[in-house]
């Protein structure tokens, strides 16, 4: 269980995380979705005890991460964004070290290593130095090093960055397996599709603030099941605004730089009607992008920008 309450982390005048609160429960995959630099890694750093919160509190498995840091750390497994492995050691030697650091030893460690190598599909490469591994294999081993001690809380910081599709699928299955086994998984990503397919609940974070959170359905409902339509071209503002104001169930989200952003229900059925209206208002439409209601469109609605910007 992770309980984050009004977390604030600042580096002097720079605020990395501001007033972030969320809970993640055992057996659940909780996603932190946001663009690069949104504050996801800082949040994870505070939870795992690498960073000291400026304000607020964090409890992991019932332990305060500042007051009872060691007790909290014993229940945590971390898979960092970087491939934090020793390139000159073999896969097995890496796991041997990380397992020992996480409190395992003897037969328990050997058994955990064997299991982790099997589950990540690296058993036949166990004796090879990591420097010979592909990016995907390194990512899998990076994951294995974080789950050796079967942590109650698993913190995954963008674990699929730069991996091939096959390894990504494999990694996501491994994450689901951990949650199924009862672990509380906190998963940060800037891949919307990953968050949608993997996470039970999500928090969307931008500029250090959580701007929305809930289940996927709850977040989708914030859009009101409306599609997002983006039009590019030439739009005389006053005439277009007047024309669109007559249209029911249509919200004008943005009007800037030859671009018009609209939220509307059943957009595909209403496209011809929209083009008529815009044509009558003297607009010239050159491009159309229709986005179904998803996290991307929610993010655009909430922040006015794309997730990957």
């Amino acid at each position: 269980m992770i309980e984050v309450d009004h977390l604030r982390k600042a580096y002097g005048p720079l605020v990395a995380v501001e007033d972030a609160s969320f809970n993640a429960r055992p057996g659940e995959i909780f996603g932190l979705l946001g663009p690069n630099g949104a504050g996801k890694s800082t949040t994870i750093g505070c939870i795992c005890g690498l960073l000291t919160p400026t304000a607020g509190s964090i409890r992991v498995s019932g332990h305060d991460v500042v007051a009872s840091a060691q007790a909290a750390k014993r229940t945590i497994g971390v898979v960092p964004q970087e491939i934090a492995l020793y390139e000159d050691l073999t896969a097995r030697e890496n796991l041997d070290y990380w397992g020992a650091v996480q409190g395992l030893g003897g037969a328990a460690l050997n058994s955990a290593i064997k299991e982790a190598l099997q589950s990540t599909g690296l058993a036949d490469r166990a004796k090879e130095p990591v420097k010979r591994f592909s990016g995907g294999m390194k990512r899998r081993l990076n994951f294995a090093a974080g789950i050796l001690h079967k942590p109650k809380v698993l913190l995954l910081d963008e674990p699929t960055v730069g991996v091939d599709p096959q390894s990504r699928v494999h990694l996501l299955d491994l994450v689901r397996g951990q949650a199924k086994a009862g672990a509380c998984v906190l998963y940060t990503t800037h891949y919307m599709e990953e968050a949608e397919t993997l996470c039970d609940r999500l928090a969307i974070i931008d500029h250090g603030r959580i701007i929305a959170q809930g289940t996927l359905e709850e977040l989708r409902s914030m859009l009101g099941e409306r599609d997002l339509l983006r039009l590019t071209g030439v739009f005389p503002e006053q005439a277009v605004r007047a024309a669109l104001s007559q249209e029911p169930e249509l919200e004008l989200l943005g009007f800037e730089d030859g671009q018009l952003r609209l939220a509307l229900a059943r957009a595909s059925e209403r496209l011809s009607r929209l083009f008529e209206l815009l044509g009558a208002a003297g607009a010239e439409v050159r491009g159309t992008t229709l986005t179904r209601p998803n996290l991307e469109s929610l993010f655009i609605k909430l922040t006015g920008k794309e997730l990957r910007e």
């Binding site: 795992c48 690498l50 934090a84 020793y86 409190g103």
Partner: peptide
């Protein structure tokens, strides 16, 4: 560079 120092710290070493 490999971030192993930070990982070791977060693992309680």
């Amino acid at each position: 560079r490999w971030a192993t120092l930070r990982r070791a710290q977060s693992a309680g070493l």
